[in-house]
C-alpha cells in the first residue's frame, strides 16, 4: 500500500466540492480514461471576480481524488490571478506530501485549473498540445509540459519526470528525448564547458557515434576500471541510451552506480554527446 498522509486519506474518503456547476464561468478537463486518470474542474466567480464556487469530478486513484479535492479547497475565495499562481508543489504540500510516483496527480490538478482559467478567459476549450510538440505519445505529454515540471520541481532524472507527468512510463521510447530535455535545461543553467579537441562539432551519424563510443570506452574508460580489477562491456546503443554491463570486480560493486554516472557517463558526454545516458544492463 502507499504511504498516504492522513490528509490525503481524508480528502479521498470525504472529497469536498464534488459535482458540477450549472453555467460555470470556467471549465477544464485533463486526462482520459485510457490514461487511468482524468479530472474536470468548474468554477464560478462572484461580482468581485473571486472564485465563489468550485466543483470537480475525478476518475483516478486515491491520490488523484485527494489532489482534486484539495485543489478545490485551495482556490475558493481566490481571484483568477491568485489561483493561477498555484503550482503542483503547492497542491502536494497542502496534502502533507504525496508519494514520489504519485506526483503526477498534483500536476493533473494544476493542469485542470489552467485549462479552466483558459476557458474562462477565451471561452475556448483548451485542447492541450495542439501547437506543442508531443514527446511522449503513450501519455500525450508535450515538450513544454516536461520542461515545466522539470523546472518547477528541479527534476534531474527521467524517472522523476515519469513520476511527475507520466512521460516515459509506458513503452519507454521517449526516454532519450526526455533525457535530452533535462540536459538542455541543466546546460542552460551551467555555462558550457570549454571545447575539447576531440569533441565532435557536428552531429554524428549513428555509425560514427557507435565507433566513437567504443573508442572512448577503450581509450578513456576501460584502462581506469582495469586498474581496480574491473571491466566494462558495451551491450547496446539505442539513440542516446548506452547500455553497459560491469565485469570483474566492478560487477556488484557498491560504487558501480557512482562509476556509471560520474565517470562513464561523464566521459561519454564529454567526448561524444552531452545527451548520452548510460544505463546498466537490466535497469
Amino acid at each position: 500500500m502507499w504511504n498516504y498522509s492522513e490528509k490525503v486519506m481524508d480528502h479521498f474518503r470525504n472529497p469536498r466540492n464534488v459535482g458540477k456547476i450549472e453555467k460555470p464561468d470556467g471549465t477544464g478537463t485533463v486526462g482520459s480514461l485510457a490514461c487511468g486518470d482524468a479530472l474536470t474542474l468548474m468554477f464560478k466567480l462572484d461580482a468581485d471576480k473571486r472564485i465563489v464556487d468550485v466543483k470537480f469530478q475525478t476518475f483516478g486513484c486515491a491520490s488523484a481524488i485527494a489532489s482534486s479535492s484539495a485543489l478545490t479547497e485551495m482556490v475558493v475565495g481566490k481571484t483568477i490571478e491568485e489561483a493561477e499562481k498555484i503550482t503542483n508543489k503547492d497542491i502536494a504540500t497542502f496534502l502533507g506530501g504525496l508519494p514520489d510516483q504519485k506526483m503526477h496527480c498534483s500536476v493533473m490538478g494544476r493542469e485542470a485549473l489552467e485549462a479552466a482559467i483558459h476557458n474562462y478567459r477565451t471561452g475556448e476549450t483548451m485542447i492541450k498540445n495542439l501547437e506543442d510538440h508531443i514527446v511522449c505519445t503513450c501519455f500525450g505529454v508535450s515538450e513544454n509540459e516536461i520542461r515545466r515540471v522539470v523546472t518547477e520541481n528541479s527534476l534531474t532524472t527521467v524517472d522523476e519526470v515519469t513520476n511527475f507527468c507520466k512521460a516515459g512510463g509506458g513503452c519507454g521510447m521517449c526516454q532519450d528525448d526526455i533525457q535530452k530535455i533535462i540536459v538542455s535545461i541543466r546546460d542552460a543553467k551551467i555555462p558550457p564547458a570549454p571545447a575539447v579537441a576531440d569533441k565532435p562539432q557536428k552531429k554524428l551519424s549513428n555509425l560514427q557515434k557507435i565507433k566513437l563510443i567504443e573508442e572512448i570506452i577503450d581509450r578513456e574508460i576501460r584502462p581506469q576500471l582495469k586498474k581496480d580489477g574491473g571491466d566494462i562491456e558495451l551491450l547496446d546503443i539505442v539513440g542516446d541510451r548506452v547500455t553497459i554491463a560491469f565485469r570483474g570486480m566492478c560487477a556488484g560493486c557498491h560504487s558501480a552506480d557512482f562509476t556509471r554516472q560520474d565517470f562513464i557517463e561523464a566521459k561519454l558526454r564529454e567526448f561524444v554527446d552531452p545527451a548520452i545516458a548510460v544505463v546498466e544492463e537490466g535497469e
Partner: peptide, 29 residues
C-alpha cells in the same frame, strides 16, 4: 469508469482485501 486503487482503498476501509490490475496500485503507469 472507476479506478481500481480507489476501489481497493474503500474496500480496505471495510476490512475487505482483494487486488487490482490498475496501474496506480502497482506504482507503475
Amino acid at each position: 469508469y472507476i479506478e481500481g486503487e480507489a476501489i481497493l482503498y474503500h474496500m480496505s476501509d471495510l476490512g475487505i482485501c482483494a487486488s487490482t490490475g490498475s496501474a496506480c496500485a502497482a506504482g507503475s503507469l
